[in-house]
Amino acid sequence: MSRADAFGLLLAFIARLITGAQGHWKGCPPKAEQRIYFANHQSHLDWVLIWAALPRELRATTRPIAAKDYWTSSPFKHWITREVFNAVYVNRQRSDDQDPLEPLIEALHNGDSLVIFPEGTRSAQGLPQAFKSGLYHLARQFPQVQLIPAWIDNVQRVMPKGEVVPVPILCTVTFGAPLTLGELDGQPEDKAHFLVRARDAVVALRPPGSGERPAAAAPPPAGPPPPPATRRGPPEPSAPPALASPPVQAVLPLDGHA
């Protein structure tokens, strides 16, 4: 076992000790298929949590995206992202001659799985912000790769913004059913619609009554929460594209982010 492997195991152990890092596979089994996992982003720990929730065999081929300027700025950061996590580096500064998705596309051509946080930034509030368009472009270019929504719960309580030491609190990662790019009148689904649908698929995985939620954003409880057994069915039917106005959209403005 190399030093990086040992360090990875140690890190996964610590993540499990602090957060439990339980993976709930509600919509798909953990399988060695090529996948893009996309999740809500609330904390620096999100990636480690998803990574620790994955079975060990899948960790080696599932790669995070790391901002090149930050994660190569010191030898240790560079080592941990390169050797332990096998991260895909992207440039944050957009240059005209290069597609920012280029490294991701290359990784997918290699057959690796990716974990992306389509919000592009961390949101401390309960619900994720609007998704950025990268997910859509990847979905169009790689129709054979499964798109798995995931909801990371409770992690903002473990390490709120500005704190460095995590508090031990149990977190879960819920993986949903694969999402596919739909078609409308023979045309592929348009971008805005798909991104809303993808975001809804992530939000739908949120466990009922969990975590601290700002009072303003909390949806009114509609009766008793359903028992989890009924939520195990295929949660995301291939929704008819006309029905795209879920109540969550009223909470956050969608313009200006896509």
Partner: peptide, 25 residues
């Protein structure tokens, strides 16, 4: 440790409790 972790998960703590929880754990 494990029991307290579970108990704290059930509580509605806020950001301001972070230091207190660190002290406890």
């Amino acid at each position: 440790f494990l029991a307290l972790r579970e108990m704290v998960t059930l509580m509605k703590t806020r950001r301001g409790d972070h230091r207190s929880l660190l002290l406890a754990f």
